[in-house]
Design a protein around this nucleic acid. Structure first.
Lengths: 209, 209
DNA sequence: TCCCCTGTTGAACTTTTGTTCTAATAACAG
DNA sequence: CTGTTATTAGAACAAAAGTTCAACAGGGGA
């Protein structure tokens, strides 16, 4: 139930923020919306705030926050390295986590990381993961962990075979079953002490072309 | 080659913007970094600008733009529907593009949409696309188009079979070859007039758990 | 018609905030 | 040690920007 003037102000706010990275002043709005007086803008801004479209910081210059485009936080995820059969994954340990100096980073929305803490990304090199529907060139988003629940897709380092793969994890009586995603392929069995969990897959991203 | 004070200012700027949605004033920085005078902040801000870390609007309150987290634009992508074998894809035509009233949307960084114009997303329902390394529950990011280059992964509607699938597109003499991603599976051949291109896959996103 | 409500004006007022200046101090190279 | 440059201090100034106010216009509804 917004007046035309209020819609126009809201629209101006959005366009201004698209462009500038800091909010406009009341007088910017006066000019931008062809309004005659700052008090009119103030009047309408108060209504917009009451209706929950914006938030205003009292006595704060440019203190307008748009509730819309507001809380879309981005997470900067380090691309730690590549994963390929036969190579260990260079996953940081819990201690060295904070000083990862990674060349590449990836900006992702929280919809993908879903608030997880220690998230990193791996470049998949080679086709050795096709059985997990993961292809050469894909990016896997990982959450750092060294434990896993049954059924989770995890990155493991098999000490004996000197091989890293992505498999579903199942703990059985006295061994661990690593199940390819492709049900036609046979599972791999390993002793617990031979399996080193490097992280849990939380998402897969594939860019085409 | 930033001084410790400059690092701290930069860090404060980032934290402030994480929190507030509008940049801090010079005096906010004074307080936030335990600096004694506004002129010191001004002095260091000028250095930070000269070195390209920030941009300042002259005489503009809170006119500090962080070059870092700056240009990470988000794109709001409509999730138009689900794709499954046997169902048509409800892709909007070029005319109806602008009034898509989609229930769900997806916020993505430009790294994923890469500046493409008319991008939409589809929920993959069913396992009929596993041969293209696309699983039940995946999200495919599509660019609207009705033409395709050889080798591109596209969504097609096969009028005759009344079936939608994702396949690689190859134009041959007088027919079209639709090649599954899985090389072990046989291609499908179709007459050009039987093939309706619904869009081009630009990315695949899979969330685990 | 006369109120009451919403919206508008234009100006004035007060804070906030960027900027500037001078002097003092620290850091540093020769 | 000495001149030179980088940095800091504190204050003061001027512009920018939020806020307030009294008065006014229009539009219903009683």
């Amino acid at each position: 139930m917004l007046s035309q003037k209020q819609e126009r102000i809201l629209d101006f706010l959005r366009r201004f923020l698209d462009d500038k990275d800091y909010p406009p002043t009341v007088r910017d709005i006066v000019r931008g919306c062809g309004i005659s007086s700052t008090s009119v803008v103030d009047y309408n801004l108060n209504i917009l705030e009451r209706k929950g479209h914006i938030r205003r910081g009292r006595d704060i210059s440019r203190g307008i926050e748009l509730m819309d485009r507001n809380r879309r936080r981005l997470v900067r995820v380090p691309v730690i390295g590549r994963i390929a059969a036969g190579e260990p994954i260079p996953v940081p340990s819990a201690e060295t986590w904070n000083n990862v100096a990674s060349a590449e980073t990836l900006d992702l929305t929280e919809g993908l990381t879903r608030g997880k803490g220690e998230v990193y990304a791996l470049w998949v090199k080679g086709t050795s993961m096709v059985d997990a529907l993961i292809n050469d060139g894909d990016i896997v988003l990982m959450e750092y962990t060294n434990t896993a629940e049954n059924g989770e897709l995890i990155a493991v380092w098999l000490k004996g075979k000197r091989e890293a793969t992505l498999k579903r994890f199942y703990r059985e009586r006295d061994r661990i079953r690593l199940q390819p995603a492709n049900i036609e392929m046979k599972p791999v069995y390993a002793e617990p002490e031979n399996v080193e969990i490097q992280g849990k897959v939380i998402a897969v991203i594939r860019k085409l072309e």
